[in-house]
């Protein structure tokens, strides 16, 4: 905590600013997004699992 420099403080402030800016849009998306069916969620999770396995492969290669 003692080693906090101005770059870390500016980074934190910038992230807080982004959260404040994005918050209304997030609420709007939450309210107005259509609900996905279980098969639609599966079609989303399937490529994510492939991405996760691919990253694991990259970590093994490095």
């Amino acid at each position: 905590m003692d080693d906090l420099n101005w770059m870390q403080i500016v980074s934190a402030l910038a992230l807080v600013m982004f959260i404040i800016i994005l918050f209304p849009a997030t609420l709007d998306k939450l309210k107005n997004s259509p609900k996905g069916t279980s098969s639609e969620w599966m079609s989303f999770f399937f490529p994510l699992i492939v991405v996760f396995l691919f990253i694991t492969l990259l970590v093994a290669l490095v």
Binding site: M1, L4, Q8, S11, A12, L15, V16, F18, I19, L22, F23, A25, T26, K29, L30, K31, N32, S33, P34, K35, G36, E40, W41, F44
Partner: peptide, 23 residues
């Protein structure tokens, strides 16, 4: 299109976690 809310909430949570990890 059903992913909109989920992804935005996930992104905000990640930003919160990133702020915590700065400290």
């Amino acid at each position: 299109s059903f992913l909109g809310g989920f992804l935005m909430v996930g992104f905000l949570l990640v930003l919160l976690a990133a702020i915590a990890n700065i400290f």
